[in-house]
Design a protein around this nucleic acid. Structure first.
Lengths: 151, 151
DNA sequence: GTCTTTGCAAACCTTTTGCAGCTAT
DNA sequence: ATAGCTGCAAAAGGTTTGCAAAGAC
């Protein structure tokens, strides 16, 4: 007898799903992961992608960035770091991505401080803080260009 | 002729829905708003709550805090400010709520700085930043107590 | 052989939408 | 009278689940 879900058997599909989430910088949805892998693994099912991503989440191998346009988006980079979400095309980017404005690095520094303060105070008043998510919403440079061209 | 949705007529139900979102500190879902108002407005429909919240969102009278346990949560306090979300009971709290640890005020200060930096750099490299969302995930003191009592 | 994993399809649940009737102006 | 607003029920769309077959050990 054991705690349910504790005995884990090896699965090639599970490996492939985790590798895909970890290796992409696209902060993918389950559907996106499925679409990418479907070509190489014809027998794959979307339900399997969901089931395995939920496993990864439990063991903290993957985190959720949040829901964008109705789809949950995931990240294989699990330590807290800020994201930029384009409200136009739905793209999710790491805040330290090379395409983003250089002034944003100042923001990064401040947020590092925040994390440090939190680490000290995380048990105050009986609260437990597990994680921080910071998301900047806006319009990415591609979409800004598109709008300017159309108008 | 006019831009669709521009001509707005007065509606008591709309007023009531906005007032409910603005007056509560619960960061409610559409369903919660509906449940609260249903007693006073028997003819109310959930679809009307959704439709009106979406209007408020467009005119930025209300913002989304994010999706918690599959339900979108809203806030009538529209200026960016951090939130705490309990992963156990789903409660959403403002980060400056009196129940929260005093050390958290240091975090608040840092995040104010972040907002200032952003305001300066928001148009760099063609990007436009509209909004910032910071969420701290953890377990609220009530749920920590519950777990300790049970164990 | 036993227990885990998976595909398929159905179920679930929140949110959106079409339409006919109602309300505000 | 002319729009906009609402209730109802149906549809939509992402995610979960039951079950029997396939796979890992």
């Amino acid at each position: 007898m054991s705690i349910p879900g504790t005995d884990r058997k090896h699965s090639k599909k599970r490996d492939a799903i985790l590798a895909m989430v970890k290796s992409t910088g696209s902060h993918p949805s389950a559907q996106w992961v499925y679409d990418q892998l479907k070509a190489d693994i014809p027998g794959l099912s979307l339900a399997t992608v969901y089931r395995n991503i939920n496993l990864f989440r439990q063991e903290e191998a993957v985190v959720s960035v949040g829901v964008v346009d109705g789809e949950e988006r995931f990240d294989g980079r699990v330590e807290p770091h800020p994201h930029f979400v384009c409200g136009c095309c739905g793209r999710v980017m790491d805040y330290d991505a090379p395409e983003l404005p250089p002034s944003f690095s100042k923001v990064m520094e401040k947020l590092k401080d925040v994390t440090d303060i939190l680490r000290d105070g995380r048990q105050d008043a009986g609260f437990v803080i597990d994680y921080r998510k910071t998301v900047f919403n806006g319009i990415c440079s591609d979409c800004v260009k598109k709008v300017k061209t159309t108008a």
